[in-house]
Amino acid sequence: MDSTYLLQQIVNGIGLGSIYALVAIGFSITYSILRLINFAHGDILMIGSYCALFIFLSGKVPLVVGLLLAMGFAALIGMLVERIAYRPLRTASEESMLITSIALSILIENLGILTVSAQPRKFVFPEVFAKNHELAGVTFNNMTILTVGVAVLLMILLTFFVKNTRLGTAMRACSENIGVARLMGIDINIVVAIAFAIGSALAAVAGIMLGGQYGRIDPLMGFIPGLKAFVAAVIGGIGSIPGAVLGGYLLGLFEILLVGFLPIEYTGYRDAFVFILLILVLLLRPNGILGSAEGRKV
């Protein structure tokens, strides 16, 4: 294998990893506060991409506005989902929340099928984004640059929010000890709503980037990336935002390199490898790379 090929795969991996990282962050923040694995998170990604699709189609809004509108809409849906389905389950068991999230995922997917039909839609970014660049033998287009750039920018903003604002601190406090956080006067409902809003907005961006890379979207598009982003969050250490980012990029690289270097007859097993990796991580290092040990009440 020559090094250009490897470099090319790494660039592709970073592109995919950015998407996983964005989705994984959402998994991680809702998990860290509520101990909830939100399987419907991947479907928010789909909602974001459809939202962007309708905005692109309907009028000539600038890309940034379209992106922001889609993020806003997805955030609203995310908060709505939390308000309706998860809030009544605050004291319920982990399994109850898990089942509910699966139910929500199926609900959103089928509502999608009902309203926008199961037929895939074309999702085309303006021409400029298809333009290819070449650097040291590695080709990448503007879409990749946009994906990575937006992802990194959002992660920096998020880090700033979490580290330096009053609400961000409250959020970290809630993820450590929700009971005591309430004693401090933190309204958990607000913090949880914001966590869902942030996670959903990031997922929407991921959905748009994913749509832009594949050129088409459909109501079931969120399921597999959602599951994989969850795997990424677990690998990085679920509950930790830097962990989610790291896990996202690692998984993106792992997947692309696997496909790039495995003999062609095994590339179909790509998803199987991802989940075997998940099971291995769960068994060998359940707290992930950056996660902190989770105490268990005895």
Binding site: A85, L89, A92, S96, I99, T100, A103, L104, I106, L107, E109, N110, L111, I113, L114, S117, A118
Partner: peptide, 16 residues
Amino acid sequence: YGISQIVLSVVLIIVI
């Protein structure tokens, strides 16, 4: 299309 799954999931959420 999809109505049976929609009903199933809604029923499930309500039951939980």
